[in-house]
């Protein structure tokens, strides 16, 4: 198979990129792949799409949103969304939260989904369990209120407050 860019050398680089949920196959020779920034030479990671990523970014902006994503900045490390797009690198772990809104669609374009389904660190497990319990309690609360079982509802509400506090998610009421 020949490189689809230069049509001269044989393609050694084959990959799929996902744009707008659609998979596009690309077949490039080493030289062209390198030129387009899609190659990272072995034995680093076989795959990298840094520059490709910048190509994906413009479509991330959703028209009509109050704040264009490029104005976003991470309060911890100062990285702006624009810089992130240019470098395709986060500055710190808080960037994820700072860029949360445009990040969802972006990750969907790269990975097809935007929700982690793998390993949970041991440290995060209790938190996850608490969150699950919180969800259950909120549902129970609704049911009790609907059933006008106010005494029980109050008890559940106290438990919810305690959990919310532990999770650092105190809701303004």
């Amino acid at each position: 198979m020949l490189c689809e860019n230069c049509g001269k050398r044989s393609a050694t680089f084959h990959f799929t990129k996902i744009v707008n949920g659609e998979k596009t196959e690309m077949h490039l020779c080493d030289a062209c792949a390198r030129e387009r920034g899609e190659a990272l030479s072995f034995p680093g990671d076989a795959f990298s799409i840094h520059h490709l990523l910048s190509g994906l970014m413009p479509s991330v902006q959703t028209p009509g949103t109050a704040r264009p994503p490029e104005r976003l900045a991470c309060p911890t490390c100062g990285m702006t969304y624009e810089e992130f797009v240019k470098k395709s690198r986060f500055g710190c772990s808080d960037c994820y939260d700072a860029f949360k809104e445009p990040l969802g669609p972006l990750l969907k374009r790269i990975h097809g989904v935007a929700e982690h389904g793998g390993k949970v660190p041991r440290r995060a497990e209790p938190k996850r369990a608490m969150r699950h319990r919180l969800q259950q309690l909120r549902q129970a609360l609704k049911a009790k209120v609907a059933a006008e079982a106010f005494e029980e509802a109050a008890r559940i509400r106290d438990e919810i407050r305690a959990l919310e506090q532990a999770l650092g998610e105190t809701k303004a009421e």
Binding site: F47, R89, F90, I110, V120, R123
Partner: peptide, 25 residues
């Protein structure tokens, strides 16, 4: 303390590694 988020999974430098951070080959 490893950078992790319930929705994003393991937070990596590059968005192409986020989630599991796993490359099996």
């Amino acid at each position: 303390e490893i950078a992790y988020d319930e929705a994003f999974g393991y937070k990596t430098s590059c968005p192409t590694n986020v989630g599991t951070g796993l490359r099996a080959s």
